[in-house]
Amino acid sequence: MSDTDSLDRRRMALYGWMLLAPALILLTTFAFLPTVTTVWQSLFSRGTARRPAEFIGAENYQYLFDDPVFWQVATNNLIYAGVTIPVSIVIALGMALWANGHLPGRGFIRAAYFTPTMLPMIAAANLWLFFYTPSIGLIDRIAGLFGIGATNWLGQPETALWAIIIVTIWKEAGFFMIFYLAALQTIPPDLREAAVIEGASRWTYTRRIVLPLLMPTTLFVMINAMINSVKLIDHLFILTKGGPNNASKLLLYWIWETAFSYFDRPTAAALTVMVLAVLGLVAVFQFRGLEKRIHYR
């Protein structure tokens, strides 16, 4: 009896591993292995034809920390994250509250909010070029009506990053709306009825009942938004290329530029390690949330 049991168990384990093998091989090849080689690579100097790469320890990191551009790009990315995350979440929440209601033209409203999500970032950037082009762009036309002169939104350091931020918010708010919409539909209508009977104002109902119930969704959306603040950089290629003078440069774009324009793999690797470390922190944060949820069940 126990013999067949253990045989069965062993067979289960074997099947399990066999089923997992293809996915594990690919994950190892394109996620785990490159993570390790990135760390390794970041400890070596940039090899040339005459001088092969040699182990230099943390020198690449030191070099980056001494480089003002690094601090500028890191600051840009922090501002990018610090603005796009809360603003898109708040807009997404507003959108969801509206799109969930019985307003006239609800279908159109939902589609309008969600459409940017379906567009490639490159295409989105092309659309926005129209708005940002100095003096002939739509924004400047409107500004012109009020007697405000032409502004080179993408070409001056004070506004370039903000122009990028606006496109990102436009692109991701509708995506986050979906999750809030789903959560709103799970709130039982009795709660609203009860609130009405108690004479609660709409604001009180939203703040005291809806928002707390949406907390898990907010957490989920926030993690997505954090990841996006690293990932969403495609529009830089069209709109600013990180300029002027690095004013709108973000980390992932800089990694690309360092590796594929300046062919400086070790520095790009060191940068990648730092980005991975930040993402790892986000992951820990998320897994802890997951674990808590599992324990509650």
Partner: peptide
């Protein structure tokens, strides 16, 4: 979290 986009170099 280890996005393929971030690992472009390796």
């Amino acid at each position: 979290f280890i996005l393929p986009e971030v690992l472009i170099v390796e």
